[in-house]
């Protein structure tokens, strides 16, 4: 029974990872790619870790996998945020059909001031 549940969880993890990589290929610009890929691939890896916990129970290997889940969540979300901010400051264009961009509306004037000073 445990083995069946863990196999189903591995299947769910594979499907989510596949959707994330498909989004990485199909979506038009870096911001949308980062969004789909981070969400889907992180949850896919978490599903595979959970399947290991269910298959082996709470011994040494299962507890290690349980500790790895929050580490994976926090590092992947913080990394995505840092990469998004860095690429926006570096000046990569958004997709041409984007609706609004309040961030560059608010920060563009300040950046010009700092570059003039330096």
């Amino acid at each position: 029974m445990n083995e069946l549940i863990s196999n189903i969880l591995i299947g769910i993890g594979l499907a989510f990872s596949f959707f994330g990589c498909l989004g990485l290929i199909r979506l038009p610009d870096i911001y949308n790619r980062l969004q789909s890929a981070t969400k889907c691939v992180t949850l896919g890896a978490c599903c595979i870790l959970l399947s290991l916990v269910i298959r082996y129970g709470f011994n040494d290997i299962g507890i290690k996998a349980l500790i790895a889940i929050p580490i994976l969540f926090f590092t992947s979300t913080s990394g995505a945020h840092a990469l998004l901010k860095g690429s926006h400051i570096s000046g990569f264009k958004m997709w041409e059909k984007s609706v609004t961009d309040h961030y560059s509306d608010d920060t563009l004037g300040k950046e010009e001031e700092t570059t003039e000073k330096t």
Partner: peptide, 26 residues
């Protein structure tokens, strides 16, 4: 087309490699 796309792809590949390690552990 840009540097940031390549960095994102490498980052996502790291998470997938973690999944491969867990499958080897299973």
């Amino acid at each position: 087309p840009t540097v940031a796309d390549r960095v994102v792809a490498i980052d996502i590949m790291g998470i997938i490699v973690v999944g491969i390690c867990v499958l080897l552990a299973i």
